[in-house]
Design a protein around this nucleic acid. Structure first.
Length: 134
RNA sequence: UAACCGAGCCGAACGGCCGCGCGGUAUCACGCCGAAAGGUAUUACCGUGAGGAAAGUCCGGGCUUCACAGGGCAGGAUAACUGAUAACGUCAGCCGGAGGCGACUCCCGGGAAAGUGCAACAGAGAUAUACCGCCUGUCCGCAAGGGCAGGUAAGGGUGGAAAGGCGAGGUAAGAGCUCACCCGCCCCCACGGUAACGUGGGGGCGCUGUAAACCCUAUCCGAAGCAACACCGUAUGCGGAUCGUUUGCCCGACACAUAUCCGCGGGUGGCAUGACGCUUGCGCGUCGGAGCCGUGUGGCGACACACGGCACAGAUAGAUGGUCGUUUAAGACAGAACCCGGCUUACAGACUCGGUUACAGA
RNA sequence: GGCCCGUUGGUCAAGCGGUUCAAGACGCUAGCCUCUCACGCUGGAAACAUGGGUUCGAUUCCCGUACGGGUCA
């Protein structure tokens, strides 16, 4: 699943300071309304809205291998959530790895991400009805 | 059989489902973003896709830009010898030394006899020395003994180190003072070796340690590094903060202007075997490269040469993943960032070859 | 990615091949002072990142490792 990556440092700073956050054992999620979403949509050939996603992993977690694996696991979990439940678009989303991510399977990250996005009211589709029932 | 020594090699595999980067073909599409240069989407198929250390950045090169007549100083690096190599502080062989029963391993291995410095504490004394002791002379004293002058490094104790070792001669007592033997250093000769060096003979000498202290000798070194650099483009540029509107499940739509402040300068190549020629293209040919694999020849070896074959990651928030199953259980260290040759450091396990010692058997 | 630095008590730090050596300040702690606290005075505890090497002797010199920092578009 392709997505637009955040690479500017100021956007990370903004997400950390202004965004809604959820902190779990494996990941921390920061969500902020993307002011440039419309412009990006226009640039997009299919005229679709999208989320800009940033992955952040501290050097404290380990070497390049450990950090790469953390990013892959988070990416896999995110794709699973997006595919099954759907996520609202037009946001800046920063996924920051936490120490618990080392050595976990992707379904654990997926679970936590789904819970986090539900709490942040970012889900659409089938998961929403479950949320209301719960 | 056991315990070791050395060298090499691998460092998960297979299958199901869902995914990623790059290249190609088809599709989309005379579309979209951008001032331009330029960039780019969807889907399907095919090909391809991290390491032995990719790491640390400790050395050496390629490449690039700048500098450059020649010479010297300063500074840095290296240190037996012969070779290998593009080069090296690397590697091979060999010499010397150390360790091991042995296979074998280890050594920053020039010069302290050019000069300077330093050597705390202890000790009489640290590169020159007389504290105790020994001896001679002389004076005092009945004597024991003591004072003064001198000789002496054999003995004592201190120290990391006290001026070769041991025996004999010698002497008042002693001393390489003399001699034999041994040890070490320097010089000369002969033989062996390309050489370091080894063996033997002769002569001289007896010298503390430290150069990872200054230094001396010999050899080498222009500087910076792909964030280098080259080319294309170059506009009332781009980004952010402040004050907002609109949509609101999704899809879609508007305004994105003005003002103030702050910050920043685009793209492509280099760069993924390169160049050239032919071809719509696939591809083919020629030349180049410390490219990779195999075979042969030479060499003890590092390696060299010849022939044949091969094309093998190229990202830019950074591609190999997720998950399930099987293999006894999958589990070490760890991720290319311009490219090579080394070194150093980390590392679960698997395999191959050669050798040593001990025991047992034939 | 390249190129450079640094590491000494809890913190900031000086230092040199050796005895006096592991200064000094803040902090901590015990005592004195005071009716009590503060200030002040006296005393005390507490460290050379780590593994090798050179040396008689290393915190210092050399090599490796770990950690921390600076700088270059």
């Amino acid at each position: 699943m392709k997505f637009t990556a955040i690479r500017e440092n100021h956007l990370y700073q903004k997400a950390y300071h202004k965004g809604n956050r959820f902190v779990g054992q494996t990941v921390a999620v920061f969500v902020l309304r993307d002011r440039a979403a419309k412009r990006l949509m226009l640039a997009h050939p299919q005229k679709k809205y999208g989320n800009r996603i940033g992955l952040a992993v501290t050097k404290k977690l380990g070497g390049a291998v450990v950090r790469n694996r953390a990013k892959r696991v988070i990416r896999a979990g995110w794709q699973a959530v997006e595919r099954t439940d759907g996520v609202r678009t037009g946001y800046l989303i920063v996924l920051s790895a936490r120490p618990g991510i080392v050595g976990v399977k992707s379904w654990q990250v997926e679970q936590e991400l789904r819970y986090a996005l539900r709490r942040l009211d970012m889900l659409q589709g089938p998961a929403v009805s479950e949320n209301t029932n719960a």
